[in-house]
Design a protein around this nucleic acid. Structure first.
Length: 502
RNA sequence: GGUCCAUUCGUCUAGUGGUUAGGACGUCAGGUUUUCAUCCUGGUAACAGGGGUUCGAUUCCCCUAUGGACUACCA
């Protein structure tokens, strides 16, 4: 088998959608599985949609995910340049080849004229398509005399170059995911290949570049499936072998209908982009929300592909090993934000307490804590298994850092009894006399005291937790007091008694 | 409207011409924790509908329905 060469070819029109990231990932996995080459090509032939910062965003996103580009605008390579606007000079000659072969032609219709035609057709319930049926009535090198259209070109009149789609021919082609497809050219239109601004359209640039860059497999989103027949025709007109195609199913909204959009994320509170997008209308990113790239990639890989086994947790290496186009599904996948969290939970559990403590320390610094924040490794160990994100450690441990300011009324109503203050006072003096304040020392001491006094556990432990935490949640109470220390424990008991007894 | 694509639990999916249709997320129940969460155990829940083909279809074919993509001098 020849060397696999695949490309990811986004347009720099804004932040890269997670559907795009998944396309890049599948390309990457496919290439790496066979030791092939992953190419990043920037498709910026539409200058009006170019967005500053988007190229960098794309590259940073791939890097964050651990997708390594072999050839691209930064990496270079033998087939460059890798930005289509830098390849402008190469496209025109290919358009000319098509014209010479009679497979393409000049057209002088203005956008306004065509728009009017479209409206007119629509008003009588038809769809206007620029094809064999109408091309004979419009302004182009078929309807004009050679001297007339040549004169127009010489005069610098604006024109486009269109592909001449055959009138009525069944064309057959194959997709690695969808199998064999047949389309009649009569339903297709004469697509513009070369725009009046001197730039090629996607269709021309894409085919020319894929050929020149010796791309062997085109793995892209399903939204391209309708233009596949055109692309096949172009390869045929040029006399080139076409690469193999695989059209990936789309990522759909978690609820309702249609493909996943930024709005869904905003509405339901999850990101639709890998990284925070800082320009203009900003957008949340998985990285900034606290997702690990490994978890993000794992989640994305399983959305539309499965290994055929019951394994769900995969490293990039394992994904590379297991991936195959054959196991990519045919139908669109609804995105499930809950499952995304679950993946992150799995990866967080695998981190060492030491590593998590470091990450949590960073988090605390950003929050303004600078010194004296205690044994974070131990703290993290107490709550690790209940969190999915490093930021959750904070919401699970805020009461470690500061005494409660309010006390849960529900819990007070249920647990606070007349004798509670007296019992807590007793408990306080008991704790005061303990020298070893570790959990393993305080717990048996307190339990023995409860037994000796004939109290029951519930009447003591619940109010104890209430004054220490402020409500009924959190890790083992003796672990908490051990971490905050004797002095703080006694203070909280005292404060709690006076605050609640009022 | 037209062209093309798709359709297994709520979601991601496995699977087969004859299976108790499997797993994961979610959800529910029980257990653990005298808290909350985690965790463990168990339960709930699906082959879109109608025709064929066949001894037998969830699986193969056709139709319908539903969903989706595309329908620009955007990609």
């Amino acid at each position: 088998m020849t060397n696999v060469r695949v490309r990811f070819a986004p347009s720099p029109t804004g932040p890269l959608h997670i559907g795009g990231v998944r396309t890049a990932l599948y390309n990457y996995l496919f290439a790496k599985k066979s030791g092939g080459t992953f190419i990043l090509r920037i498709e910026d032939t539409d200058q009006t949609r170019y967005v500053e910062g988007a190229e960098e965003y794309i590259m940073e996103s791939l890097a964050w995910c651990g997708i390594i580009v072999d050839e691209g605008i930064n990496e270079g390579g033998k087939y460059g340049p890798y930005r289509q606007s830098d390849r402008k000079a190469v496209y025109r000659q290919y358009a000319d080849i098509l014209i010479k072969r009679g497979d393409a032609y000049y057209a002088f219709d203005t956008s306004e004229e065509l728009e009017a035609l479209r409206k007119e057709s629509e008003s009588i319930g038809n769809t206007f398509i620029y094809n064999a049926a109408v091309r004979g009535k419009l302004k182009n090198s078929f309807t004009m005399t050679e001297s007339a259209w040549k004169k127009k070109l010489e005069d610098g009149a604006p024109y486009v170059i269109r592909y001449r789609m055959p009138d009525n021919e069944d064309i057959h082609f194959d997709d690695m995911i969808r199998g064999h497809i047949v389309v009649n050219t009569g339903t297709l239109d004469d697509k513009v290949l070369f725009k009046s601004d001197g730039m090629p359209t996607y269709h021309l640039a894409n085919i020319v570049d894929d050929h020149l860059m010796e791309i062997t497999h085109v793995i892209r989103g399903e939204e391209w499936l309708p233009s596949l027949p055109l692309h096949f025709m172009l390869y045929r007109s040029f006399g080139w072998d076409s690469p193999l195609f695989a059209h990936l199913p789309l990522l759909l909204k978690p609820d309702g209908k249609g493909k996943l959009s930024k709005r869904d994320g905003d509405k339901m509170g999850f990101p639709v982009f890998p990284l925070f997008w800082p320009f203009g209308e900003t957008a949340k990113g998985y990285r900034e929300e606290g997702y690990y790239p490994e978890a993000f990639v794992n989640m994305l890989a399983l959305l539309g592909w499965n290994p055929g086994t019951e394994q769900e947790i995969f490293s990039m290496e394992e994904l590379t090993e297991a991936f195959s186009i054959e196991r990519v599904g045919k139908s669109g996948s609804r995105f499930d934000p809950e499952k995304a969290k679950w993946f992150n939970h799995q990866y967080l559990q695998k981190k060492s307490n030491n590593q998590l403590a470091m990450e949590f320390r960073e988090f605390l610094r950003a929050k303004g804590f600078h010194n004296d924040i205690g044994d974070l490794e131990k703290l993290v160990g107490l709550v690790k298994e209940r969190v999915s994100f490093v930021k959750d450690i904070w919401s699970e441990t805020d009461f470690f850092f500061k005494a409660p300011e309010t006390y849960d009324n529900e819990v007070i109503k249920k647990r606070w009894k007349e004798d509670s203050p007296a019992i807590l006072m007793e408990l306080s003096s008991l704790l005061k006399n303990l020298h070893d304040f570790s959990s393993s020392a305080t717990e048996p001491a307190v339990k023995a005291w409860i037994e000796e006094k004939g109290y029951n556990m519930g009447q003591v432990m619940n109010v104890f937790r209430l004054v220490i935490v402020g409500t009924s949640r959190g890790p083992h109470i003796f672990d908490i007091i051990s971490w905050i220390g004797k002095e703080e424990t006694l203070n909280r008991i005292k404060k709690g008694i006076s605050a609640i007894s009022v």
